[in-house]
Amino acid sequence: MANQKIKTNDVILQTVTQIILFIIIIFSIYLFFAGHNAPGGGFIGGLMTASAIVLLLIAFDIKTVKKIIPINYILLTSIGLMIAVLSGVGSFFYNESFLSHTFDHFHLPLLGETELATATIFDLGVYLVVIGVTMTIIQTIGETE
């Protein structure tokens, strides 16, 4: 025992992370949906979600995080790009010009009268691309020896 290195115990950091993580993610999702009428949107929402995952990376290590969130971020980026581009292509079927967006009011359970806009789909693409790119950068730098 004497010659063994003293292992740092991150119990406080890890416990706090487990709670704060959800608050950050919920806030990022709030920002994502707020984007239409208030400051926020896909870019800042995506960065915020990525920062939550980064906090997880700081508190634990890369292997653990990969086990908790088994996502290939490069694929996530391309899926996000695909969603964003196809949301523009969708207007082709209605003989409108590329990237034309529309909205309508729907009556949803719990939420009541809600305005749903197709621009959100584009924003979802942006959101996924931002998470994917940020996490790819951080993971690639973190993994290189």
Partner: peptide
């Protein structure tokens, strides 16, 4: 649009 979509699609077939 065509090259853009192709570029994205090719990421899946790495």
């Amino acid at each position: 649009l065509l090259p853009l979509l192709t570029g994205i699609l090719l990421i899946f077939f790495r």
